[in-house]
Simulated scan of single mutants.
Amino acid sequence: MAAIVHAVAPSNQTWDFSCNLDVNFESEEHALIAYTALSVDKELQPDKVRRVMSVSNNKLSVHFEAIEARLLRASFSAFVDVLTLATRTIQEFGRN
């Protein structure tokens, strides 16, 4: 399962900055809950930041790309904040 934000950088811009985030969950169900909750938040500047998410083997994987380091940092930081909230909610209310 993957969510791809379709965006094309203008021809004078390149996706020079990237990072990956892998989060292991207790179950595939928990990983899918996090994926579903996080996939509704689209990037605010899709022409400058891309995010691709997938779930496999109890793991949520996220790949970020951006045209500037500061945009990558801001996107990654905001995503981790929401991921932390989703993970705490799953721990509190999720089925085992």
Rank of each mutant, 00 (worst) to 15 (best):
E43H: 06
N12F: 11
V8W: 01
S27H: 08
A69S: 03
S77I: 00
F79Q: 04
T14M: 09
W15P: 03
E68C: 08
E43A: 04
V23S: 02
P10C: 11
Q13R: 15
M53W: 09
S75R: 04
L85E: 14
V5Y: 09
A7Y: 01
S61A: 14
S27F: 02
L60A: 07
N20L: 14
V82T: 14
I67P: 00
I4Q: 06
K59V: 15
G94C: 05
A2W: 07
A2D: 07
V55F: 07
I33D: 05
L71R: 07
F93N: 01
A66G: 13
L44C: 08
N24C: 07
R73K: 12
D47K: 14
T14R: 11
F64H: 04
P46L: 08
N20A: 15
L21S: 05
V80P: 02
A66V: 03
S18C: 14
L60P: 00
V62Q: 01
E43G: 06
P46H: 06
T89P: 00
Q13S: 07
V49N: 06
S27A: 08
F17H: 15
T89C: 02
F76I: 00
N20Q: 14
W15V: 11
Q13A: 13
C19D: 08
N24P: 04
S18H: 12
M1F: 09
E26T: 03
N12H: 14
R95L: 15
L44N: 13
D81M: 08
L38D: 02
N58W: 00
T89V: 07
V80W: 05
L44G: 13
N20T: 15
T87I: 11
Y35L: 09
L44Q: 13
K59I: 13
F93D: 00
L38V: 03
E28K: 14
F17K: 10
L32C: 10
V8A: 05
P46V: 08
A2V: 14
R51E: 12
S54R: 08
E26C: 05
V8G: 01
I67R: 00
A86R: 01
R73C: 10
E29V: 11
S56W: 00
E92R: 15
E26L: 12
L72D: 11
N96Y: 05
L85F: 15
F64N: 04
R73I: 01
T14Q: 13
L71T: 12
A74N: 11
F25D: 02
N24R: 09
A37C: 12
A34W: 11
T84W: 01
E29W: 11
K42S: 05
V23A: 01
T89G: 01
S39F: 03
E28A: 15
V55W: 09
E92G: 01
S54P: 02
V23K: 03
M1P: 09
I33T: 10
V52W: 00
A34H: 08
S11W: 04
F79R: 03
L38C: 07
L83A: 10
I4R: 09
D47F: 00
S27I: 02
P46W: 02
S18T: 11
F25K: 06
E29A: 09
I67N: 07
A7C: 12
V5C: 13
A66Y: 01
T89D: 02
Q13V: 10
W15T: 10
M1K: 10
R70C: 09
N58L: 00
A9H: 05
R73Y: 06
